[in-house]
Amino acid sequence: MKKDKFDEIMSAIKSTYSLPSLPEVINKINYLMDDDTVSVNYIGNLMTKDISLSAKILKIVNSPYYGFPHRIYNLNHALVLLGSNTLKSIIITSSIFDLMKDIMKGLWEHSLFCGLTAKYIAKQINNGKQIIDEDLVFSAGLLHDIGKLIIAIKFKDDFNAAIKLAQEEKKVYVEAEKEVLSVSHADVGYYLTKEWNYPASICTPIKFHHEFLMLYSNENIDKNYNIKSITNNKNKLYYSKNYVIETAIINLSDILAKSLGIGFSGSIYVDEIKNEIMEILSIDLAFLKKIIEEIYYFKDELNVFN
């Protein structure tokens, strides 16, 4: 890795002025959401100060994806229904959404689709039990490629060169990125979300979303650690081994989004779903078929978030 570029990116992350800036009100809401002693009403009132944000959140909570039986007009009600992690991600991504659209066509759709897919997979795996936090994987899916945005801003030429290389030589984006850039979007995303005080349950899947096997071997995962054994072991609470299950879900969702060709994240080429991912999530082809049939219809809902 060329040290100078890595340092440049790191200093870009550390100095907020070169990053997509979050409006003041959003910063404040973000901060307050981490504080358990602050009431929902207080956050709701603060949010109404940003009209476009309030409108967006109401539009999302009223979308068919959430499928609440009644229309929700009250922002506080929406806050409770969506949960703070989902809201936090929506707030952050919606504020950089325009930037994403300008800089890289399709990245927003890819990110959102990946978030929706991750949440849906978590829901199916949970099957009524609370093993995986569905809102956290939604957030991780939504933000997994946020590093690409920073790279696109700071190293526009290199970023475009990587995309061109991927297209010409038929490569997945990460492979092209390795050849052109000295820094990976996964690492950049990791440092950025850490800087934004996101929990490790979101930062870790972002860091390893292309290096699942590395995390898998780092954590010494064996074949006995999987969803099936966790579910069967009723007496023991689920403990996450460094979010390896969450990372597996993000990696899988990313590949499924590319498989269906929804959005664009640097290269059209689909990467392999590793057997270890299937094993740790205790899923088979029939499960994937059900997921693909269902998530395909999410594409109609992407415009709700615009």
Binding site: K170, K171, V172, K258, S259, G261, I268, Y269, V270, D271, E272, I273, N275, M278, L285
Partner: peptide, 13 residues
């Protein structure tokens, strides 16, 4: 077909 070209020999894919 084009999108899956890199993984065309893997059964699962």
């Amino acid at each position: 077909e084009e999108r899956f070209i890199l993984v065309k020999d893997i059964k699962l894919m």
